[in-house]
Amino acid sequence: MAKYDKKRINELIEGTLEFYQLKEMMSSHKDPERFELYREVLQDRVSWDDPILLPYGLHLYIVQKANGDRIVKCDCGHEFCDYKENWKLHARIFVRDTEEKMNEIYPKLMSPDPEWQVIREYYCPNCAAQLEVEAVPPWYPIILDFEPDIDTFYKEWIKKPLPKA
């Protein structure tokens, strides 16, 4: 069973590991302490103090607030909403629904045809990071990508106490 230190996990997050190192990590049996290590490294990397319950996407975290709330929060500090809600509904959106807007990203003929499909870009209202991109036909309900069962995960799967604010 593989075992890694915080430095290695930080390099993994940074994307600076060499391919042979990544390959080794892919081929080895997974290190059970990865989640705790990863969570601690990420906690050190953000500028705020709310304990991270679960990394939720690039830049996004579900964090524990002192009042008991669990909030989706951007690493820039912007707080979106309760973790049961879809954070995208609290983001800013730009929809590529014309050939011209598509052509900003893709060469001619290589983009979706807006009559069939649009591209929706969701940005953080504070730091403007592009957090998610959907390619869906017009009218498609905004997708709620992930609803984690955080309590079961901590209590029954990894058997660790939930971080407290």
Partner: peptide, 17 residues
């Protein structure tokens, strides 16, 4: 005329055909 998948966490879908 369609991308058959989205990108992930801010990445774009691959080009369509």
């Amino acid at each position: 005329v369609m991308a058959t998948d989205c990108g992930l966490m801010g990445g774009y879908p691959a080009s369509s055909g």
